[in-house]
Amino acid sequence: MNTVMDRAEIVLWVRHANGRWSARTVWVVVVDGEAYVRSAFGWRSAWYRRVLMHADTEVEVAGVRLSVALQPVDDPELVQRVSGAYWAKYGLSWPGPVESMNGREAAATTMRLTNVGQVSQLPA
């Protein structure tokens, strides 16, 4: 099966106020069967700020773009578990970037991908 949650990274498309779309490759991790992403640059990332303003958002996997929603996570225990998932998935290959992704600023941007059920089965 080829799902969003099986991927090392996904392309997140976010619509600008003027209707233009921009793409950003992000790492995706899974905790308790749900997918999570973070902004590596915290609040400084324009895509993250647009998502918080309810911009249309899509994910692209295997050449397929589908609408999703991102929901901010404010539960500290869940944020810690997501940090653990980043270490488990990426830590051996990318310890420096993972340290950054688990830093205070980036961890504060943890978001759950919702409506992922709609994108669960994608072509290889």
Rank of each mutant, 00 (worst) to 15 (best):
M1F: 08
N2L: 08
T3S: 13
T3I: 01
V4E: 00
M5R: 10
M5L: 12
M5F: 07
R7S: 09
A8P: 10
E9F: 11
I10F: 06
I10L: 15
V11P: 02
L12M: 15
V14Q: 03
H16V: 08
H16M: 11
H16A: 14
A17V: 09
A17F: 09
N18Q: 09
R20C: 10
S22Q: 13
S22C: 11
R24M: 13
R24H: 11
T25E: 14
V26W: 04
V26F: 07
V26Y: 06
V26R: 03
W27C: 03
V28I: 11
V28D: 00
V31Y: 00
D32H: 08
G33Y: 04
G33E: 08
E34K: 11
E34P: 00
E34S: 10
A35K: 02
A35T: 05
Y36W: 09
V37A: 01
R38F: 01
S39H: 04
S39N: 07
F41P: 01
F41D: 12
F41V: 12
G42P: 00
G42D: 02
W43E: 11
R44V: 09
S45Y: 08
A46R: 15
A46V: 12
A46G: 14
A46Y: 10
W47P: 00
W47V: 05
Y48Q: 08
Y48L: 12
L52Q: 09
M53D: 14
M53V: 09
A55P: 02
A55Q: 05
D56T: 11
T57Q: 06
T57D: 03
V59R: 01
V59I: 14
V59E: 01
E60L: 10
E60F: 13
E60W: 07
V61S: 02
G63E: 06
G63Q: 04
V64G: 05
R65C: 07
V68I: 15
A69K: 06
A69M: 07
L70N: 00
V73E: 01
V73A: 04
D74I: 07
E77G: 08
E77Y: 07
L78R: 07
Q80L: 10
R81G: 01
V82Y: 02
V82P: 02
V82L: 03
S83L: 07
G84E: 15
G84D: 13
G84R: 13
A85L: 07
A85Q: 03
Y86A: 01
Y86S: 01
W87F: 13
A88Q: 13
A88S: 13
A88D: 14
A88F: 06
K89G: 05
P95Q: 07
P95V: 08
G96L: 09
G96V: 11
G96T: 09
E99T: 12
M101T: 05
N102L: 06
G103D: 10
R104K: 13
E105H: 12
E105R: 12
E105C: 06
A106N: 03
A108D: 12
A108M: 07
T109N: 03
T109Y: 01
T110K: 02
M111N: 00
R112Y: 03
R112C: 03
R112F: 03
L113H: 00
T114K: 04
N115W: 11
N115C: 11
N115Q: 15
N115H: 15
N115V: 13
V116P: 06
G117M: 10
Q118S: 14
Q118R: 15
Q118N: 13
L122T: 01
L122D: 02
L122Y: 00
A124M: 14
